[in-house]
Simulated scan of single mutants.
Amino acid sequence: MSQVDVYLVRAFSISGQGGNLAGVVLHADALTDLQKQSIAKQVGVSETAFVSQSDKADFQLAFFTPTVEVDFCGHATLSVFWLLRHLQHISAGSYQQETKAGILAVEVLLNGDVLMSQSLPIWSAEFSAEDIAPMLGLQPQLIAQSGLPIQAVSTGLVDVMIPVPYGVLDCLEVDSDAITRFCQQHQCVGFHVFEMNPPEAIYTASCRNFAPAVGIPEESATGSSNGALACYLNRHFGYQQAIFEQGRAVKMPSRIMTQLIVDNGELTQVKVGGEGAFSKLISICMD
């Protein structure tokens, strides 16, 4: 029986605290998908990233939740590149990662922060407040009063953007079983619920993300869904930069920064970033 070292890194942390733990396995070329899934299940965090060599990019990354492989994971990507820089395997600069969501650019800043390029948004189905609100323990009119649509958007993974009024985000009563059935039926990963903050606030919006269909009841920081939210807010309010807060409800406050590049009125690039922090190194037994 062999052992595999797994680094646990806090992605989107705030001054080294909070954030979202991701597992990172380096030199994963020899591992099978079954072994990767087993390791991710034993690690038990929302996603574990496996780093291998690539003939198309600087690195190949594969992402596994405790129950399933996913095409992309923003916070695990940040964790990988923050760790590579922390271990002095790479220096500050621009890199490319090969993922099942495509070849995506990553920038490692001099201070160690990581800025990831995501896929341009794919706009999918809109849903009614009457369908969505009961799964969050809300009255439909609370969602409808925002005047914003409930819409599935992807910049790597499909999440449903759900606006709620300011002050409501901490009062949700989530039906995880219903959300799981809905996401399986509509081929989406999870619900990204957000409330816009007052203009003077540090954060543009505060968010909660529920993805029980892929084994994550609530996630404290999500790069892909906040990339999608940045595009959503650009479409409806014209924002090109936004800072999101997430994880408050699970006592892991996180800060996610987003930047959109618009050329002649057309969105050309989606970037999501933040800081990382080392948590610990663990060893997983592998058959």
Rank of each mutant, 00 (worst) to 15 (best):
G265S: 09
Q35S: 07
N234Q: 12
S79M: 13
I282L: 12
F81L: 10
S46I: 13
P66Y: 07
A49G: 15
I284K: 00
Q184R: 09
V25Q: 05
L109I: 03
Q53P: 00
G102Y: 04
A92I: 05
E200I: 02
G265Y: 04
R85H: 15
C231I: 03
C231T: 12
V174Q: 02
N264E: 15
A201I: 13
Q151W: 13
Y239R: 14
P165Q: 03
P66D: 04
T155F: 12
A92V: 02
Q118D: 03
S225K: 00
Q240E: 15
I261T: 10
H27Y: 07
T65Q: 01
L157V: 01
E266Q: 10
F127G: 15
S220T: 06
E195D: 10
F50A: 14
A205V: 14
T77A: 09
A40F: 00
R10K: 03
L34V: 06
A178Y: 15
N111A: 09
L148V: 07
A178H: 15
L233C: 05
F182H: 11
R181H: 09
E275L: 14
A144P: 00
Y95H: 08
E69L: 05
V174S: 01
A49P: 13
D55K: 08
S38Y: 08
L142H: 10
V4S: 03
L229R: 06
D287N: 02
T204M: 15
Q269F: 14
S279Q: 09
F127I: 06
Q53T: 13
S91I: 04
L148E: 14
V25E: 06
V106R: 02
Q187S: 11
V25F: 04
G227K: 05
C207I: 06
Q17D: 15
Q241F: 14
I132F: 07
F64L: 08
L104A: 01
V214P: 00
V70H: 02
I179N: 06
Y95E: 09
I216N: 03
S79E: 11
V250M: 05
G247R: 08
K36Q: 07
V168M: 05
F278W: 09
F191C: 07
L120K: 00
V164L: 08
Q3W: 03
R255D: 05
Q240P: 13
S124N: 13
N209F: 09
A105G: 04
V9N: 07
V43Y: 02
L281Y: 07
M196R: 10
P149E: 08
T155H: 06
Q184M: 07
S38T: 09
L61I: 08
C188T: 05
H27V: 03
L110A: 15
L34C: 11
R208M: 15
T268Q: 15
L104G: 04
S46D: 12
V270E: 14
S2P: 02
G102E: 02
